[in-house]
């Protein structure tokens, strides 16, 4: 089985695909920071930020609704912000009864709640787009260029490479567990919770040992090819004038967003 479901990259010939990965990482981060800086209720700025996201979608050749479709991922977390609806002092909008509480939604609460959701929603779309137009190894190169410590980028590179191999192993283990814990219909399978936890724990332990032994073999393969404690990499990316120009343009647009948000 292949876990291509993990791969978020979509091969296309587009302006965004060709852009230097550093530019894409930087602009994404700046955009997300900008969203966090926008005050509550900066509707115009939010609107333009959304247009920025739409434009990015358009430039990616992935379709204008690409990131929108995948952006629900941040939604479950919205639950955590729901309390601001009732807790902010302000003009009461509507009151209702829930279990034993009388909850009053205030205008300030609503404003804040919606603002939080919009920020999250805009930010996650940009992050979605980033990995859709950038191959993950290039993203790792970008992090190297951006001075993320080598030890971390190396761990991330290994993690990315073996993510697929090890999740394959997990699913083999899970399948083996399933096929062995077939129960008589009607009766509960597989003992109590404790027993099931033990099976899961043993699986994790086994996976650990296999991974440990694998890392030994990988180490052998590395020293067989000249590794002696220091890793060398080629950084294949070079910023072109178009990359600089795009960065400057995007940053300028985001700056204008900030001004719009504070008028």
């Amino acid at each position: 089985m292949h876990f291509d479901a993990f791969d978020r990259y979509h091969e296309k010939e587009s302006f965004l695909h060709r852009l230097d990965p550093r530019v894409k990482v930087l602009v994404t981060v700046i955009f997300i920071v900008s969203n966090a800086l926008l005050p509550d209720g900066a509707w115009i700025a939010f609107l333009f930020a959304w247009l920025f996201v739409l434009a990015a979608n358009l430039f990616s050749q992935l379709g204008i609704g690409y990131s929108l479709k995948r952006s629900i991922i941040a939604l479950p977390f919205a639950l955590i912000a729901i309390t601001v609806l009732f807790s902010m002092p302000g003009k009461p909008l509507s009151t209702f009864h829930f279990l034993m509480w009388n909850l009053t939604i205030t205008d300030a609460g609503l404003l804040r709640f919606v603002s939080i959701l919009i920020r999250a929603w805009l930010s996650v779309q940009m992050a979605i787009l980033l990995v859709a137009v950038t191959r993950f190894p290039d993203l790792i190169h970008a992090l190297e260029h951006l001075r993320v410590p080598a030890i971390l980028t190396t761990i991330i590179a290994f993690l990315y490479r073996y993510l697929f191999v090890l999740t394959d192993e997990v699913f083999r283990l899970l399948r083996a567990r399933e096929s062995r814990s077939a129960a008589v219909p009607g009766s509960r399978s597989g003992g109590g919770v404790l027993w099931r936890a033990k099976v899961a724990g043993n699986m994790a332990g086994q996976l650990f040992l296999r991974s440990y032994e694998r890392s030994d073999r990988i180490y052998n393969a590395m020293i067989a090819r000249g590794y002696a404690g220091h890793l060398y990499t080629l950084n294949p990316h070079e910023m072109k004038s178009g990359d600089y120009f795009t960065t400057a343009f995007a940053v300028a647009v985001i700056f204008i967003l900030q001004i719009l948000g504070r008028l």
Binding site: F158, R161, Y162, R214, R217, I218, M222, R225
Partner: peptide
């Protein structure tokens, strides 16, 4: 899978 430990083919062949 132990021999190819880099994310891309290029990086692996270039490692040595």
């Amino acid at each position: 899978d132990d021999q190819l430990f880099s994310p891309t083919v290029f990086e692996d062949v270039a490692f040595g």
